[in-house]
Amino acid sequence: MALPPDLVAGSATGSIFDLGYRGYDGPRLGRRHAISTLFAQSLKWTFGIGRGGRAKIAPFALAGLTLLPAVLAVGIRALAGPATERVSPITPQSYLTFVQTFIAFFVTAQAPELLGRDQRHHVLTLYFSRALGRTDYALAKYGALVCALALVLLVPQAVLLLGIVFASIDLGAGLGEAIPLVLPILLSTVVAAAFFSGIGLVIAAFTPRRAFAAGAIVATFLVLSGVVQVLVVQGRLRDPLRYVALLDPYALLDGLASTLFGVAGRNVTVTRSGIDPGIFAAGACVVAVTTLIVLVLRYRRIEA
């Protein structure tokens, strides 16, 4: 074989001129590294980090809107003091109700971005011909979106809690009010994040076209909840039919929050259906788990 002249000359004088191809003798970290790499990259992508400026607008705007009720609530509490309960409806117990639509939009914008792109451009072939398995891929993407949503939800709730602690008359009373809320907040946030992510990613996994996927996700959250609510409130449904209320995604989440915090439900579908909020809470968990299973199964069979 003929070597490029510069290569021969470089080696003849002993200087490194063109190294040519070099092998790799360093560590190979295998599958676990592949999963964590994909997870980290997807989490960054969810917020538009590492992409252009335009990709950051939607996630950061929606995260900002999610924070707004918490900031408002803290402000009101600082002004109104103990009378807050009567003035401001925004409490840790009801917080999810105020931001669920922002979260739905967040998922609408980001779930198709996370999955559809790799399907549209057949990038899956490049992933699956490496150390990464199909289930690994699905779990890494799912984990990334769940973490992103948990982050978006937890920051405002932390602000709410701090507001309670520092706006109270004395620190002890504030802590006494705040600490029992920590566990329900964590639990409801995790389930809600899994719930939103699962639904969004399953739809995105079956509809690689971004516009279709986004439309279907919006429809699932906004249209479905609206339609079910009208049916439940106006329909005067009899016994088997009134369980149609369980199809309302927001009702499931409200049932979850009211069960975990031990307060009355706020969602009209929940209160008017006459079904125990615990059943809605169980429904939310079932949806979260089922969508994850469907997602994994989808990626087992997906063409790549």
């Binding site: 790799y24 360093g26 190979r28 970290l29 295998g30 599958r31 590294h33 592949a34 790499t37 994909l38 990259q41 590492g50 992409r51 792109r117 790799d118 451009h121 057949h122 990038v123 072939t125 490049l126 992933y127 011909s129 490496r130 150390a131 990464l132």
Partner: peptide
């Protein structure tokens, strides 16, 4: 692979480096 498998919105450097990490580097 035979067919086009490259995402258009990444640079070659970013894509190849990412895939190298997925390969365990």
């Amino acid at each position: 692979p035979e067919h086009d498998v490259l995402p258009p919105d990444l640079t070659a450097t970013d894509l190849v480096a990412h895939l190298a990490e997925i390969s365990g580097l």
